[in-house]
Write a protein that binds this DNA or RNA. Structure first.
Length: 1100
RNA sequence: GCUGAAGUGGUGGAAUUGGUAGACACGUUGGACUUAAAAUCCAAUGGCCAUUAUGGCCGUGCGGGUUCAAGUCCCGCCUUCAGUACCA
């Protein structure tokens, strides 16, 4: 035995070298590529540049599944192809390594997210390496590295220091804005800013305190602090962006989401709405993706119209109207007057705040403070309206009975008493003032009984946005969102109860309920009327929850004849539906087709079409000063704060509650250590747990929290940045990733310019891909990048889906029934590991019993001795147990097989279920390819002159593969390779002139086998930069064509004819053929169509 | 509802401007090799009807239309997927 082994060993060794030993070959070349840095890109080169980028992955604990590499393989093929075509190719890879899963894991285990992330990245790297990607790993970036997020923080500061000038249509330094404020105030500034920004003069600006100025500037900055209503997810303890919510629950984990008000950092992306829209026309992205972004930006063009509010209808007088004068004290006045004076000079904080807003008829009525009424001192009173305002401190909680008696007595005298708590006044004075204002308008003046307060006199008006100003004469009512600020002011006393009840009911309904319930029509009349700008007729004002406070002005002019919702609303509440369309029947439904509209019953708009009428009505509105043309966008500013640990810290500390930026030279501000990754007990973000998280402005260092003195040492921001922060400029950082002085050098960005080809999933359409475009445009405005779109071309690869395996458990038992019989039982679906199931959908019951304990004692109702599982195609996910790992495939078939197979599966953009059944096909192809080059005894290659057939096969392959790669049709080029190898094998081709160029064609797809065979052919340089073979038409030129001969369009037989025959000659030849006569059976054809080189069709 | 994409054998999918529908694979069936299995090779494979090699009919979601000729173009539907959703 021993001797035999020794004797045959050399033979086996030799033989194994001749086999397609993919595991050895792939390891060998991966090592060589890494050692020689074969794919390292230089920032300067004589070659033209090409930048191919993948969306970098989040390194999750589950590792790569077979879906991840799909896009990477496609981009790698393209990158390799471009190298063959003589380009200097940048093809980098990195990790989007901040994110929720690592943090969730940290919360559960206490493991620092950085540790988990590092482990996961190692796994990713190993998995990526074994697939043989041509990444330039020397440029790797990780968003969670301080050296990287230093620049994320830097961009944040740049945004903070900028405002958007709508006149120059670009972002500008905040300094330029301050200059304008100093010299002329803000009345001429045309900026993207908060809606509630007040107008001030230069004098006023200069009189403001530094804090007041900073507060005003925040309303202009491109990143700003604002109290916003956010999507709060209690389970995750964080705010979610709209695109992180799917069907009302969080995308991650599926937890419920509620609306909540919080102070948050926001990004003023809305300033860029129009440019984000226009820019789409300049880039080569798919229409599908552009449409998603267009919809998301949601531009609508129309007009803004202002409707004055009319007087309320008269109501009966109930109040006792004896004139009280201003001396309203009672018998004990002399005792109380001194006390009242004292209280006036020493008001509480809340009283002082409120008085500041009530004094000097600021609300349109005179108030007195600490005034005597009978034997009471009331805080504030408007004698004219007999309205008393009381501001209560904590002590009043214990004097409820006393207060009640006092209120009763005052009300008997005809006063109305409203009470506020200190916190209400200090917390949100606007709400308080709004309520007071509402009360004032509801109460009659005792001085003037005949003239009622009128909205028109007060200058109140409802502003609406409409896309159909041409239908303004069809407006028969108005609807306000229940949350609209005017609602409290204009509602008449008669309607108040009903309106309040409706508002309360709406507030209780969650977004989800509102969404689910689109059909129910609800609303309430406020009792108030607005005046039509042209007809001057009164229009009733309703509230209804179909109007959203967050879009437009939160108010609509309802034109029931032209809008179905308005129509339904009008029908439901019996509101008139005037018809303003010529010859259109609106008795059944509204008519919304604006292109077919001719306006009638509309005064000066009669007889006009939509376009003309719109133009005219806007002109008329401008003439009377009640409206103008306006464009609205659905795109909202993006909330940028997350109540999370594992994210970029904001380079921000707080001085007197106002945010201050840390100087750029002190970046990065690194994440502090915390003991717990959960929010603090007081509900602060996890960074609230950090003990060393204060900023010392003297030393410019992070110091212990105890040292905070608010003079030199200040608290730091506790929120962190969202996931998209780190991914919004990473593509530019790859150009110069190790630069510590700049985000990237001028030379680097000038050389690489922008991404030429970007490949990634379309699920990022309204997230990463929109935010990145926004930041790129900002960087462009700042002169930092040469182009304002970061990716010239974008391809969306489809997702590879899993095929889940489903067991059917009979309800309430531990019995499982096979698929065929499930309809006979009441069953629940249970997903199980797909690896337990064979290709015929039969499960291995023994393995299943060991898989999870619940199956140990389970009973199975079989069908023909087997248990067949149900199948469901869905997203690959750990929780569906349908994840297929690429490692096993690589182990069993090799990386080249995996690469080819993923491409062969179907068109790149298509969503497709993973199914390993076909992988033997491409693996067989590689073996066949190998055998074409390597025989039992060595290479099959020689210098034989190629035959005509050899050349024809090669050149048609060159042509097809080149076209396919340019069109990203990778699946068809795999077929083309198969055909080529099948043909060359049949031709017994051994010619080096054919087989060597063929390797270059295949190399982008299957680089390992190509490199190996390339080397065996005697090449010492890597195949990766070998020139792509040149296609030559002459080898494909044919002298004859096998014409399909069809009769009435149906192909019956074919006929070989020379290509240089004329039409007539072809016709003659075909007619002379006996098969033609057979088909015709004596009939004479009516017509013979001859398309030379294509087809012959005989009609008749 | 609106916007976009798609619908082709048992399966994944081909078909560049209208011009031989089903390339290339998988699977299945039969055969060769083998003690056997694997691997490999050969043949058949859209359906139906015939069968003497030859043939015939029907077929690209459904119904119409344009054309010598339609998977491809036009009109009207159906279904699936994705995005968005009371957006004024």
């Amino acid at each position: 035995m021993c001797c035999n082994t020794t004797k045959f060993a050399p033979y086996f060794k030799e033989n194994s070298k001749m086999r397609y030993n993919f595991n050895d070959i792939e390891k060998k070349w991966q090592k060589i590529w890494a050692e020689r840095e074969t794919f390292k890109a230089e920032n300067n080169s004589d070659k033209p540049k090409y930048y191919v980028l993948d969306m970098f992955p989040y390194p999750s604990g589950a590792g790569l599944h077979v879906g991840h590499p799909l896009g990477y393989i496609a981009s790698d093929i393209y990158a390799r192809y471009k190298r063959h075509k003589g380009f200097n190719v940048l093809h980098p890879q990195g990790y989007d390594s901040f994110g929720l899963p690592a943090e969730q894991y940290a919360i559960q285990t206490g493991q620092h997210p950085a540790v988990t992330t590092e482990t996961n990245i190692k796994t990713y790297r190993r998995q990526l390496d074994q697939i043989g990607f041509s990444f330039d790993w020397s440029r790797e970036v990780r968003t969670s590295n301080p050296e990287y997020y230093k620049w994320t923080q830097w961009i944040f500061i740049q945004l903070f220091e900028s405002w958007y000038n709508n006149d120059s249509n670009k972002a500008e330094s905040i300094e330029t804005l301050v200059e304008v404020f100093n010299s002329e105030g803000n009345s001429n500034v045309n900026a993207a800013c908060d809606d509630n920004t007040e107008i001030f003069t230069a004098e006023e600006w200069n009189s403001y305190s530094s804090e007041q100025q900073q507060e005003i500037l925040l309303k202009y900055r491109l990143t700003y602090l604002a109290e916003t209503e956010v999507n709060w997810c209690p389970a995750l303890g964080t705010v979610l962006a709209n695109d992180e919510i799917v069907n009302g629950v969080s995308e991650r984990g599926g937890h419920p989401v509620i609306r909540k008000k919080m102070t948050q950092w926001s990004m003023r992306i809305s300033a860029y709405a129009e440019r984000l829209l226009q820019g789409l026309d300049t880039i080569d992205w798919t229409d599908a993706l552009k449409d998603i972004q267009k919809n998301w930006i949601g531009k609508s063009v129309g007009a803004s119209v202002r409707f004055p509010i009319l007087s309320f209808p008269k109501r009966e007088k109930k109040l006792d109207s004896k004139m009280p004068g201003y001396m309203t004290g009672g018998n004990n006045s002399h005792l109380l007057i001194e006390r009242a004076k004292e209280m006036r000079t020493n008001p509480t904080e809340a009283e002082a705040a409120l008085w500041g807003s009530l004094r000097g008829k600021k609300l349109g009525a005179k108030f007195r403070q600490q005034h005597l009424i009978n034997d009471f001192i009331v805080d504030f009173v408007c004698l004219d309206k007999k309205l008393i305002i009381e501001v209560d401190g904590k002590i009043h909680d214990f004097k409820i009975e006393e207060d009640k008696a006092r209120t009763e007595r005052l009300e008997n005298d005809g006063y109305k008493v409203i009470r506020f708590k200190n916190e209400e006044v200090l917390g949100n004075i606007d709400v308080v003032l709004n309520k007071i204002e509402g009360e004032l308008t509801q109460r009659e003046s005792i001085k003037s009984e005949q003239v009622l307060p009128s909205g028109k006199d007060l200058g109140w008006e409802i502003e609406v946005f409409t896309t159909r100003p041409d239908t303004i004469f069809g407006a028969s009512f108005m609807t306000l969102a229940p949350e609209h600020e005017l609602v409290a002011k204009i509602t008449t006393p008669e309607q108040k109860v009903e309106v309040d009840a409706y508002i309360e009911a709406t507030a209780k309904r969650s977004e989800r309920d509102r969404m689910a319930d689109v059909k129910t029509i609800s609303g309430v009349f406020t009792g108030a009327y607005a005046e039509h700008p042209f007809s001057k007729t009164p229009i009733p004002i309703w509230i209804g929850d179909y109007v959203l406070a967050s879009y437009g002005t939160g108010a609509v002019m309802a034109v029931p004849c032209g809008d179905q919702r308005d129509y339904d609303f009008a029908k439901h509440f019996n509101i008139p539906i005037p018809n303003i369309f010529e010859g259109i029947d609106i008795s059944e439904e509204a008519f919304a087709d604006k292109d077919k509209t001719i306006i009638a019953n509309s005064d000066f708009l009669n007889g006009m079409n939509y376009k003309k009428a719109t133009k005219r009505v806007i002109y008329e509105l401008e003439q009377i000063g009640q409206g103008e043309g306006k464009t609205n966008y659905r795109l909202r500013d993006a909330v940028f704060s997350r109540q999370r640990y594992w994210g970029e810290p904001f380079p921000v500390y707080y001085k007197n509650g106002l945010p201050q930026m840390i100087d750029v030279e002190h970046l990065p501000l690194t994440l502090p250590e915390v003991e717990k990754y959960l929010p603090t007990e007081t509900g602060e973000p996890p960074l609230g747990n950090a003990r060393v998280w204060a900023w010392n402005t003297a030393t410019n260092a992070v110091v212990e929290n105890e040292k905070i003195d608010n003079t030199t040492i200040f608290p730091l921001e506790l929120n962190t940045m969202p996931g998209w922060a780190g991914s919004s400029q990473y593509f530019n950082r790859y150009m110069d990733p190790r630069n510590d002085n700049e985000i990237f050098s001028q030379e680097a960005i000038d050389y690489w310019q922008q991404v030429d080809l970007y490949i990634g999933g379309s699920e990022h359409a309204t997230g990463h891909l929109l935010y990145s475009r926004f930041w790129q445009k900002f960087m462009f405005d700042k002169g930092l990048v040469p182009v304002d779109e970061f990716a010239k071309k974008l391809i969306n690869q489809g997702m590879i889906l899993g095929t889940s395996a489903i067991l059917y458990r009979v309800s309430g038992t531990n019995q499982y029934v096979s698929r065929e019989q499930k309809h006979n039982y009441d069953v629940e679906e249970i997903r199980v590991d797909v690896n337990l199931v064979n290709a015929s959908d039969e499960i291995d019951i023994e393995k299943l019993k060991h898989w999870q304990p619940q199956f140990k004692d389970a009973e199975f109702i079989l069908e023909n001795g087997n248990y067949t599982v149900g199948r469901e195609v869905e997203k690959m996910s750990k929780r569906w147990f349908n994840v297929v790992n690429p490692d096993d495939i690589v182990e069993q078939y090799g990386a080249d097989s995996l690469r080819l197979y993923e491409m062969f599966l179907g068109p790149l953009e298509q969503y497709k279920p993973w199914n390993t059944a076909g992988i033997t096909g491409v693996h067989g192809f590689l073996k066949k390819l190998w055998k074409l080059y390597v025989g039992q005894d060595g290479l099959n290659i020689n210098d034989a002159e190629p035959t005509k057939d050899n050349l024809k096969t090669l050149h048609k392959t060159i042509k097809k593969v080149e076209e396919d790669i340019e069109n990203f049709s990778f699946n068809t080029s795999v077929s083309t390779f198969m055909i080529a190898v099948n043909e060359l094998t049949a031709q017994k081709c051994t010619s080096k002139d054919i087989l060597e160029p063929l390797l270059v064609l295949i190399s982008p797809y299957a680089p390992h086998i190509a490199e190996e065979l390339w080397e065996r052919l005697g090449n010492s340089e890597s195949i990766s930069t070998a020139p792509f073979p040149k296609f030559e038409e002459k080898y494909l030129v044919e002298s004859s064509k096998n014409y399909p001969i069809s009769f009435n369009g149906k192909m019956r037989f074919t006929m070989e004819l020379p290509l240089d025959l004329s039409k007539d000659d072809i016709e003659a030849a075909v007619m002379a053929n006996e098969k033609t006569q057979e088909q015709l059976q004596g009939r004479t054809p009516k017509k013979v169509i001859v398309v030379p080189g294509k087809i012959v069709n005989i009609v008749g």
